[in-house]
Amino acid sequence: MKNYRVAILGSGNIGTDLLVKALRSESLACVAFVGRSYTSPGMAKARALGVTCSDRSIAYIEEHAQEIDLVFDATSAKDHAVHAPILKALGLRVIDLTPAKIGSICIPAVNQDSSLGSDNLNMVTCGGQASIPVAYAIGKTHSEIDYLEVVSSIASKSAGPATRINLDEYIDTTEKGIQAFSGAKHTKAILILNPAVPCIDMQTTIFAAVRNPDLDALKSVLDPIVAKIRSYVPGYRVIVGPILENGRIVVMVRVRGRGDYLPEYAGNLDIINCAAIAMAEEFAKEGRA
């Protein structure tokens, strides 16, 4: 039953891809697609799909709060800092797709159940969604991680203006996320945009410097986690490792998207949005409470 009412705030690449996914969902009803300009490509797409649109941003949400159960914030870190207290005062549940770090960190494959108690979920970053499950598995199987690093490469075309202007926040939020879930003493995140044509698929490498690496134990914990991720992001797969190379544990994952709004190469868009939709559907199961 499509009866859990969601609104999407932000009409860029992320918001528009979310819209396509929400419309496909069996339990979500997209009641509003809200941005700042009717001329954006995302807004045109939403109107073509017959979804209620507004160019009045957060003001529209404030006026229609009674008709909404959950808001996806797909604007920018700076904007979410403004939106978060307003949405809280309205009593609306929020899934934040910006790297604002205001809500509690949510990685469905790792902490879905404990996340259901929060009214603001932060989906970290695309690189965080791809790497944190691996970082978590390394943390589970190694008592001391001196250092953990994640490097993501994404296609230039998959990074819109908000993603680009949020680069520093992306790095900071991803680093804090991998630290929280792995227990590593130090963490680092790096993001590379590659303009190659045809576009490259999103790819993330996790490097770890640990005492006494145990690849078999890591693999046994990682495999079921990867299976769980694939249940909501079908295009996620491990392409290298775990291996030990030059004294480091190396795991590489690749994410191919479903090609909903941007083409399949934009796995970065897909993984964070699939995670957000998976959580919204969990809330829908719980009802509107």
Partner: peptide
């Protein structure tokens, strides 16, 4: 051939493997 750019050292591992 893959048009790898600066900063993508990890891809050398993938290509090699």
């Amino acid at each position: 051939r893959r048009r790898i750019v600066a900063g993508q050292e990890d891809l050398i591992i993938e290509v090699s493997s």
